[in-house]
Write a protein that binds this DNA or RNA. Structure first.
Length: 674
RNA sequence: GGCGAGGUAGCUCAGUUGGUUAGAGCAUACGGUUCAUACCCGUAGUGUCGCGAGUUCGAAUCUCGCCCUCGCUACCA
């Protein structure tokens, strides 16, 4: 049946977690997928691009509560913001899936039921320990003194039935599959990470949580909802209409899942393929993971800097350069794809973008078009002349660039794709200089027919290259390409152009070019004040921004964290905590650890104690000795690395960095704090 | 500490299986040109290719050791 249906080229972005507006990280992923989709359409393939939003995390209800709106209204708003952003960035997606839609929830429930029928999902009752912060269950033997030994997190006693996916059964099949399909997971070095992860052995995964009124209920057990990650990945399949739409196989399997590196190893390269294997469904043909943008050479979030919001940045480019807003959007698409390394992480700065805007877009491409059109108008009244033979060198170069373009694109090296394209642009600017058409024009005017021929050959070469480059850049900059076509006098709409038009000679003699108009005006001011950066990066309250960051938010390991909204304690509870001022007498690193310091603290007139503290990355032993600090004196002692820690220091947590609290002035050691 | 990835020009990075004077772009300096968006073109560069040793006729490239950076992981009560 389905063999008769032509397979559509199917590309997916991750579905984005709706806890904030998109930034250039998520924009990069989405733009790159769009570029890929537009390229395949150019190749004449039926192509389907999917993006969407991930809305079932239980955190959503808390965020909604905070915002003071019902959860559904809350996610409607954010899903709308994503759609709007992608529209503004010229993303031509064929569909936008929301995990709160019936088509998704039905597919997820069906998927779950089928796994259960096949014995890959089993229920298990736990009377045991549960760590809220780990979202993990522990056995009695794994817990000591109310603490999970493995994670060191506190646990609570629960009795709960949950459902588990037999992920452990797929360690070997996945390893075998990776072995047999060397280009399945890309890039290579990330595939190796997956292999390393698998070799440690997969463990069964708890795939349900207590139903608190948000999420997809487990079929036949309304007391549970399906774990958000398990639910989310099914979107790729749900959109095909699986299982009831008979044509679902015209889309599935996806040709590419393109994701950020943080959701690659655990989810897109292991969990999701294992789920598909369990139901004997075909696996996606390729899964590609790109790196992140960094800010300030490190995790942007720590330095306080963050990634700009894409539409604001495009608007800024437009304001700075004077380019039309829609062309500035295309410029941004180009800049993101050109700057990103598509393997490792890449440093992102607005100033680099501005510089590259000038160099690549204004000076190289824009100016090539501009000078070409100008000369055409000047020497030929804008009418494309007849040419007997094209310049074979340029023709050959164009061909080789097209070949490199396709080769790089096939391995998702988008920066190389553009670099190859710009070889052609660069050669042409030099070519004009070598041929000096202005000299040829003069000679031709004086009756030199050879010069006249050379002039025609030169200018048509410029026009052809510009046309071909416009075509090559069209997946990246569709609006700009259309504008180039328009200036070249090509009336055929860009939508009807195909890859075969990259062959030489597409521009017909007699075509009349239009008046020149700079596409990307040069930017005069290349420096960017901090206040502008802040504005670009923090259109939202800085609080919700969390950035070096990737691409789709949520740390994969804990997509949901339960937080009690009403977590007041009584004054009596507080008074149970015995806080004291202490003085650090000695400090030394604990061997074989990176974070732990062993501190000897005087905490009373003749009372000293040993405290282990995880601040070695932020304080050297030397600078600690002699300092007064605040400590919790009656904390249950705990052994770490064989040393008993008798208390805990208080420190502010600044983006994960510890900053010690000290008294405002020297106080007697042992002073009570309250 | 364990695992993984890296350390190449001022900056961002290329350098396939070891082979002649180690590359590109940007930034810098000087020169040229004028069709063009103060644009384009040319020239000049500087590099102990992280450090040390080894294999080899020959190493940025292979081996070993060390140093440093980044990621994951354990220790952070």
């Amino acid at each position: 049946m389905s063999e008769t249906l032509p397979k559509t080229y199917y590309i997916t972005t991750p579905i984005y977690y709706v806890n904030g507006l998109p930034h250039v990280g998520s924009a990069l992923t989405t733009i790159v997928c769009d570029v890929l989709a537009r390229y395949h359409r150019l190749k004449g393939e039926q192509t389907f691009l999917l993006t969407g939003t991930d809305e079932n995390a239980t955190k959503v209800t808390q965020a909604a509560e905070k915002a003071g709106v019902p959860p559904m209204e809350f996610v409607d708003g954010l899903a709308g913001a994503f759609k709007e952003c992608w529209g503004a960035l010229h993303i031509a997606n064929n569909d936008f899936v929301r995990t709160t839609e019936p088509r998704h929830t039905l597919a997820v429930q069906e998927f779950f039921s089928r796994l259960r029928e096949k014995g890959y999902v089993y229920a298990d009752t736990y009377e045991g320990w549960y760590s809220v912060s780990d979202e993990t269950f522990f056995r009695d033997t794994e817990v000591k003194d109310g603490i999970a030994i493995e994670s060191g997190k506190p646990v609570v006693r629960v009795k709960e039935e949950n459902y588990f996916f037999k992920l452990s059964a797929f360690t070997e099949p996945l390893l075998a599959y990776i072995e047999a399909n060397p280009n399945w997971l890309l890039p290579e070095f990330r595939k190796n990470e997956v292999v390393a992860f698998l070799k440690e052995g997969l463990r069964d995964m708890c795939i349900t949580r207590a139903n608190k009124g948000w999420g997809i209920p487990v079929p036949g057990d309304e007391s549970k909802v399906i774990y958000v990650w398990f639910d989310a990945v099914i979107n790729y399949l749900a959109v095909t209409g699986w299982p009831h739409n008979p044509e679902w196989e015209s889309l599935w399997p996806a040709d590419v899942h393109l994701v950020g590196k943080e959701i690659f190893v655990r989810f897109h390269a292991t969990l999701w393929p294992a789920m598909l294997m369990a139901l004997d469904l075909p696996l996606p043909k390729q899964v590609y993971a790109h790196g992140w943008w960094t800010v300030g050479g490190q995790k942007g979030g720590k330095s306080g800097a963050s990634l700009p919001h894409p539409t604001r940045l495009a608007q800024f480019l437009s304001e700075r350069s004077g380019a039309e807003p829609e062309l500035a959007v295309d410029a941004l698409r180009y800049l993101l794809c050109r700057e990103m390394n598509f393997g490792p992480d890449t440093e992102f700065t607005v100033e680099n973008c501005l510089r590259r805007f000038n160099n690549d877009l204004a000076n190289d491409l824009g100016n090539l078009l501009n000078r070409t059109i100008n000369m055409m108008n000047k020497y030929y009244d804008g009418v494309v002349p007849e040419v007997e033979t094209p310049d074979t060198e340029i023709v050959a170069l164009a061909e080789s660039v097209c070949a490199d373009y396709e080769r790089s694109l096939s391995v998702f090296r988008f920066n190389d794709v553009l670099e190859a394209t710009w070889r052609l642009v660069g050669r042409m600017n030099k070519y004009i200089d070598e041929k000096a058409p202005w000299g040829l024009a003069k000679a031709a005017n004086n009756g030199d027919t050879e010069s006249a021929k050379a002039l025609a050959q030169t200018l048509t070469a410029c026009l052809e290259v510009t046309r071909i480059v416009a075509l090559l850049t069209s997946p990246f900059m569709p609006t700009a390409s259309a504008a180039i076509y328009q200036q070249l006098g090509i009336t055929e709409p860009l939508e009807t152009v195909t890859w075969s038009d990259t062959t030489w000679g597409g521009l017909k003699a007699g075509t009349k070019v239009t008046a020149p108009k700079p596409l990307f005006p040069r930017i005069q001011e290349l420096t960017v004040a901090d206040t502008i950066l802040y504005e670009l990066g923090s259109a939202n309250p800085p609080k919700t921004e969390e950035t070096p960051k990737p691409v789709s938010e949520t740390p994969p390991a804990t997509p949901e964290t339960e937080v009690k909204t009403d977590n007041f304690i009584s004054i009596d509870d507080f008074l149970k905590v015995e806080l004291k001022v202490g003085e650090i007498l000695a400090a030394e690193p604990v061997p074989n650890t990176t974070k732990l310091l062993r501190l000897t603290v005087q905490s009373g007139e003749d009372e000293t104690r040993t405290i282990l503290s995880g601040i070695a990355e932020y304080y050297t032993p030397d600078e600690l000795v002699g300092r007064q600090i605040v400590l919790i004196a009656n904390l249950q002692p705990r052994k770490m690395r064989g040393i008993e820690s008798q208390g805990m220091l208080l420190a502010a947590d600044v983006d994960g960095k510890a900053v010690l609290l000290t008294p405002d002035s020297l106080v007697p050691v042992g002073s009570k704090v309250r």
